[in-house]
Amino acid sequence: MDSKLLKKEKLLPLLDELRKEFLLVAPVEEDALLFYRPVESVAEIKLGSGRSVVPPKEWFFPQAESLYRYSTEGGGLVLEETLAATPAVLFGIHPCDLRSFAVLDAVFLQEPVDRYYTLRREKTVIIGISCTAVCPECFCSAYGISPVEGTGADVHLSEVGAVYMVEVLTPKGKELVARYQEFFEDQVAGVAEAKEARKETLSGQFTVRVTVDGLPAKLGSLFDHPYWEELSRRCLGCGICTYVCPTCHCFDITDVCRGFEGKRFRCWDACLFRDYTLHTSGHNPRHALYQRLRNRFFHKLKYNHDRYAIEGCVGCGRCVALCPVNIDIREVIATVRGLGE
């Protein structure tokens, strides 16, 4: 692994250069909320920022995207590709969200690969950034993620005093750094150590210690436990926890048809919605809210692990922070581990 330095004052000029070559997607603030959006000027970028409301998965797997267009005018059928992706730089991704890309990759890159996801993924260079503080809802350490770790990024920045330590982690990252080499400087002694020290400080800041050892197996024996019904009593059955989750990847496919023309879309779906598992016959295998809520936790904490050998949660804390009725996955994990069978 290569490592370099980037002076703080050079970050925005670098991004500005990148913006000329790539579509630059970066954290921006709207009404005091953070979103990852394409920016036209680097002045829009919110630096040193916390957690976005909607996770950056949106960039690879948008909430709504068109798959193709069709026309049946004159009796025939004409299909038209709508797949398009521009070379992009996704800037400012935190370690938990970097891990989430690995979770999504396991789903979308398995055979048959998802072309829409793959194309964007291939054309995007990811610049990660270390956290400088731990939010009260975060628990990424439970999954072995460190708030200063860049795994998953092509290039990763960690703020250390007046500079960013730059880790060049992939060939894509290497190419990028080489192309813009005039912005970077050579690594000096002490910076890597300072970054490690930051890791220590931050790991002391987690408000709740979460252990997930043995959880998938344990859950297997608790499918019929009354706990799920109890937990679901306060759940609203809304789409917040799934829509803000960086690893949730369920989608629905629908057609929008106007006369002889139409478009096929896919869009996010949420397993908490009443109609998620509804069959055409009217039968709904998860008709009760507790079944749907249980599914969410089983998917996050067991199914994903069993199927792809990677945890389905990255401990970003978004659902913890945003659930209106305080259904807290950290508490669910602790309770489940403590339940008798």
């Binding site: 909607v54 609203l236 059955g237 809304c238 917040i240 919605f273 109609d275 509804l278 009217g282």
Partner: peptide, 26 residues
Amino acid sequence: CLRCYACREVCPACSCTQCAFEQAVP
């Protein structure tokens, strides 16, 4: 708006058993 429908689910005046914005019954 994410169309998560939390605003509907929580609202005591949104009391319809079938909402105009869903197809929870075929």
